[in-house]
Design a protein around this nucleic acid. Structure first.
Lengths: 235, 235
DNA sequence: ATTACTAGTAGTCGAGTAT
DNA sequence: TATACTCGACTACTAGTAA
């Protein structure tokens, strides 16, 4: 019977309780003490009176509301903890809706490039910018990744997202285009970046990774290896 | 569009499913097709792999996501219906958090006034404004309501909310103060208004109602009767 | 009127496992 | 690897009812 189920401060709000807390918020309990009967709340929530009663008891015990039950109904005010729960959900939704993804993860398979990456990365005009803007000195070479077919949209989406821009330049009669970069974590371990090289010989299913180390070696990759890339946006 | 009560697909999202849909949104499924394994989703959600799998199946059946399950995982994109669910929650939370209550309900008991209401309401300087700004011709008289003790905060909160203001005026040596009004529904049936008459002989627990009809008669009220007032804000 | 307890039941979850 | 089925255990619900 004493199965230590941490009775006291289970700080995760169960989904059904969240809905009841939300309903109380709608009734104004964030701003003032409201009077609501379990019957009325049950009607709003679409559950029974008994369930509404239990929800109030549990929200109270969890510290999300202050409550005085009386014969006229429940006098309820949402506590600071309850407010944080509501606002937390709001902030989470806002960041999701405003399509500023805080994180973007995708997978791809290693494909062999044409050795071009090494040439590009070793151009001083690029190299200096990479070092300064990304915070690491890139290994002279890129790892080419072919996205799995269903994720063909990733590259297009990346093009619309705020990137670190490496400016293009001219050297002699050759033009080096602008490169968009996204700091990324490769296989959950190595910090590097996704580089969208504008003038690419690959189709849209291939993206290139750069890192301070030789990724193939340090991660033990071969052609066809699965690689996971996680881009984290700073905000 | 009509109001189809949709057979077959239960169009109310269960709380636990909502949480899974939210998690998918966080992973970016609002914007593109993502690849996620039931194991990964389970980890994020704090449920088992089996439960995550079931949730995906039910979200799919409910029309909230498009899904292709494969041996690499689930390719998932949130549908229009799913997006509406997420955005609906966001909008609801925004209106709640931004403390612009869309609705405020309270209860009070009928108390006898001093007959002053009738005098005020019949002043042409007030009457014309009420008629024009509230959209009805007020019955010459007010219904006084004593708030239940726990709702003493309601009057104070009303003073901070956007009101329809009836300007004061002078008639002879007498000064008639400004009145703040809130369109309201009384006992879920009669459209009238709450009137905060600045210069009142009552304490803060009493508010006054006006309406196009004689409320005591049309609602069959007596002293001590319970009255429910719902103020709806336009936006 | 209320709240909220008890008891029975419907529904949800997760371990094992098939594919 | 992955998804997803079965089924026993557990959780959350509602009906009845006391206070």
């Amino acid at each position: 019977m004493s199965k230590e189920k941490s009775r006291g401060a289970d700080d995760s709000l169960k989904p059904t309780l969240w809905y009841s807390l939300l309903k109380l918020s709608e009734l104004g309990a964030l701003n003032r003490k409201i009077l609501v009967s379990t019957i009325a709340l049950a009607g709003d929530r679409g559950v029974s009176q008994q369930t509404a009663s239990k929800h109030l008891i549990e929200l109270d015990r969890g510290g999300y509301i202050e409550r005085q039950a009386s014969v006229q109904g429940n006098h309820i005010k949402i506590t600071e903890k309850g407010r944080r729960a509501v606002e937390g959900m709001y902030l989470k939704l806002r960041s999701v809706i405003d399509k500023k993804p805080h994180m973007l993860t995708f997978k791809g398979k290693v494909v062999n490039g044409l050795g071009e990456g090494a040439y590009y990365m070793s151009r001083p005009g690029y190299r200096e910018q990479f070092s300064r803007k990304l915070g690491f000195n890139p290994f002279p070479g890129t790892l080419n990744l072919r996205l799995v077919p269903s994720q063909e949209g990733v590259r297009r989406e990346l093009e619309t997202l705020p990137a670190i821009t490496i400016k293009g330049f001219k050297r002699g009669k050759r033009t080096f285009g602008e490169v968009k970069c996204f700091p990324a974590v490769i296989n959950d371990s190595v910090k590097g970046a996704v580089a969208l090289i504008h003038r690419t010989h690959h189709d849209d299913l291939v993206i290139e990774l750069i890192a301070p180390t030789h990724l193939r070696r340090s991660l033990g990759l071969r052609e066809g290896s699965d690689v996971k890339v996680t881009i984290v946006f700073n905000s």
